[in-house]
Simulated scan of single mutants.
Amino acid sequence: MFIKNYDFPYVFHLAKEFTIGQTIYINGIIDNNSEKEQTFTVNLIGGSTIMDFKRGAVPLHLSFDLNNNKTTYATLQYGKWGQKQETSVPFKLGKPFDIRIRAVYNKFEIYFNGKLFNKFKYSLLLPLEIIEYVTVDGDVKVTEMRVGGRVFHTPFQANFPGGSLNVGDSIIIYGSTTGNTFQVKLLDHKGKPALSLNPTFDKKLLAQHGRNGTAALRLEDEDGSTTFGSDKEFFVDLRNFKEGIFVFINRQYIMTYPHKGDASIDYAGIVIEKDVDVHAFEVCVHQR
């Protein structure tokens, strides 16, 4: 949740200990005022609600200088800067930005606008569990900050709350790929696939197999590259409506899979398998 009375800088308090497998999501819009310096920072902080050189520690500091096209990655402890790295800035003035910071073993995987931009090793002297706050300061407007995910082992299988995926419910999957294909299967109450989605990255296709037949759709980003890849974090959203399962990938509508039977009881569980690293999984239950 946001700490009240902190309109700026934005301060997000982690309700629980930040652990390996979790991701911090930050979305917003960069200010397009040419009279400003056009910089902003993101800090993962322990021991203080603000970045303070006299107390607290910063296991990860991100500084974005759009004027000079420079992103700085650093740590801060006891008032002294630790290791530093620099890359270019992937964001544009006046445009939305998407930052995802995922904790894996001994490093942060840092995604900008869905693409893996850097792997920054965190100090053993600044372990993940000391992180209490996430702050954003500078020429930006933050629209969303949240934490999600854990370590998922594949194949991953789960049953839906209440025994079925009801009309209005959604399935949210964040992940990255480790090979050429993976599968997302919705299972019926007999444990058989009612719907199977099979992205193949080398051919840029999404194959859809179900009780209503098979179809293949071409998937690619605006630059012509494949939608999926080891350097990208994908976002799959499956929504159960009366008309069918609506498939969204990276917030873009892809297709609708019509139901074979009753939409409210047709799907009992899900399996995610093959060449995929699942970052987050959630079933969003429609409020009735």
Rank of each mutant, 00 (worst) to 15 (best):
residue 69 N to A: 08
residue 88 S to F: 15
residue 107 K to P: 00
residue 114 G to W: 02
residue 90 P to R: 06
residue 28 G to K: 10
residue 51 M to K: 06
residue 32 N to C: 09
residue 70 K to E: 08
residue 79 G to P: 05
residue 37 E to V: 10
residue 50 I to N: 08
residue 36 K to M: 12
residue 77 Q to V: 05
residue 54 K to A: 13
residue 84 K to D: 01
residue 51 M to N: 14
residue 76 L to N: 01
residue 98 D to I: 04
residue 45 I to L: 15
residue 52 D to V: 05
residue 114 G to E: 02
residue 35 E to Q: 07
residue 65 D to M: 04
residue 64 F to N: 00
residue 63 S to N: 09
residue 47 G to E: 11
residue 96 P to M: 11
residue 87 T to W: 04
residue 42 V to Q: 02
residue 72 T to K: 14
residue 95 K to Y: 06
residue 38 Q to H: 11
residue 74 A to P: 00
residue 35 E to D: 13
residue 25 Y to V: 11
residue 96 P to I: 06
residue 88 S to D: 12
residue 44 L to V: 13
residue 60 L to S: 12
residue 81 W to F: 12
residue 60 L to N: 01
residue 25 Y to F: 15
residue 84 K to L: 11
residue 102 R to G: 03
residue 71 T to D: 04
residue 113 N to R: 06
residue 89 V to D: 00
residue 59 P to F: 05
residue 41 T to P: 03
residue 62 L to M: 13
residue 77 Q to K: 15
residue 43 N to G: 09
residue 49 T to E: 15
residue 35 E to M: 08
residue 25 Y to R: 11
residue 98 D to E: 15
residue 88 S to M: 09
residue 43 N to A: 15
residue 47 G to H: 13
residue 44 L to K: 03
residue 104 V to M: 04
residue 60 L to I: 04
residue 73 Y to V: 03
residue 111 Y to W: 07
residue 96 P to Y: 12
residue 60 L to V: 02
residue 114 G to I: 04
residue 92 K to F: 13
residue 110 I to Q: 00
residue 67 N to H: 11
residue 66 L to I: 04
residue 91 F to A: 04
residue 45 I to N: 07
residue 85 Q to Y: 12
residue 102 R to P: 00
residue 110 I to T: 01
residue 99 I to G: 02
